[in-house]
Design a protein around this nucleic acid. Structure first.
Lengths: 232, 232
DNA sequence: GAGTGGTCTAGACCACTTG
DNA sequence: AAGTGGTCTAGACCACTCT
């Protein structure tokens, strides 16, 4: 179920970091202390902390506890803004379309199946300059009415909400990262020179059956990098 | 110590996948079965399997076991070759130098400290064409004589060997991925057109004290992508 | 010595899919 | 119904660093 203990603890700690209540450099409480405070086993705490490390929100500093690294973009936590400036997630439009061959492969559906395509952008808050543009694709078949209504709506959707509304369980994510030259569209959308490199990130949200959706992001490499902490 | 049970099981399964004994599409034995066969607790098996998934060697297909995805580059397992062609790791040279400011930051040492810089390349085996070039940097201070001798040698070193020889414990890795335009050197080294995007990957190997070394790789995006499987 | 994270055990129950 | 991975518990001991 969505309400697993380690997920709840992860969300709570992530919220404290993203809100600034826990600032970069702070130390997290000890694992045994967290386990006691929340009334869970230490293994649950460790699973939550491993998630924080994987997403780059905190790092283990053996054997002196975990220290906080800083806030992240909620919808793609492994994407790290290179400056300290805050950002905004902006929904652009929602359209209905037929799955391309690529959609079909990544989402495990048939080409031509109905999908919802949602365009969004990430902008720096101070100057409103574009940092990244993205497309979220959701299959329309095989989800319940509430989820259909949600994906057809005109604001940003995070995976947690979609998981709850669609009553599906998210098993994990599969992310691909690559580099490429920007397209013509991206020159204008990202305010880039004619020839520039962009960071291309694709994520598929895996559930027990078909994926709930895919995310494809083109990011300015001077604004973002992908940042991954891997424990042993 | 290095000889943790989950690491041994991970290495054994990874070896079976990289050698082709377990082929893409095969199913791994059940967690409980592996636990029994190896005489370990199921949590140990799960930790090893999580590592295989994180590196893209296998993927959990709930609730039907794990299936094998395929072999990986041993020194950077999250880097996935886009073709099925085998590759070679080629050591180019080993030089001694002083840590740059960048080295100092990533390795947690002082600028000017002695370091060993090792150049290497990844090439396709069939045509011998260049796929990626890389630089490994190791601090010379604070490691034992055997480790100094090893890093000054003229062949490729993997982290496992270095960990064993240096008698240091690897706690984990910190990886950054970004995109950029290729430099002049890379045009010739990677056989790229004048303006091309490269995938830039940096990895720091963390131990309980100072990092054992850093890896910096410039990869052709038509040969490689970075591939992460993230469990919940 | 105290406190930390890292490793490991031996159970238990649940959710989900397949036969 | 059987078998799978996912979650969780309640312990234990070790390795490491700091004071």
């Amino acid at each position: 179920m969505q309400g697993s203990l380690h997920k709840k603890l992860f969300d709570e700690l992530a919220e404290r970091i993203n809100s600034g209540q826990l600032a970069p450099g702070d130390r997290l409480p000890a694992e045994r202390r967290l386990a006691e405070d929340y009334g869970v086993a230490r293994s649950v705490v460790r699973q939550a902390l491993a998630g924080l490390a994987r997403d780059g929100l905190a790092a283990p500093s053996y054997p002196r506890g975990y220290h906080v690294l800083g806030p992240r973009i909620p919808c793609l936590p492994r994407l790290r803004p290179l400056t300290g400036e805050p950002w905004d997630l902006e929904h652009i439009d929602t359209t209905q379309a037929q799955a391309t061959d690529r959609d079909a492969t990544t989402l495990g559906i048939a080409a031509g199946d109905p999908v919802v395509v949602r365009h969004f952008a990430i902008r720096g808050r101070e100057r409103g300059d574009p940092w990244a543009t993205g497309i979220a694709t959701h299959p329309l078949d095989g989800i319940n009415d509430a989820a259909s209504e949600l994906v057809l709506s005109h604001h940003f959707i995070d995976d947690d909400t979609l998981e709850r509304v669609a009553q599906r369980r998210i098993i994990g994510y599969h992310e691909h990262v690559t580099a490429r030259l920007s397209t013509d569209n991206e020159h204008s959308a990202l305010d880039l020179p004619t020839l520039a490199a962009v960071l291309d990130i694709t994520r598929v949200t895996r559930t027990t059956t078909t994926p709930l959706g895919g995310l494809s992001l083109a990011a300015r490499p001077d604004r973002f990098e992908v940042d991954y902490l891997i424990g042993t």
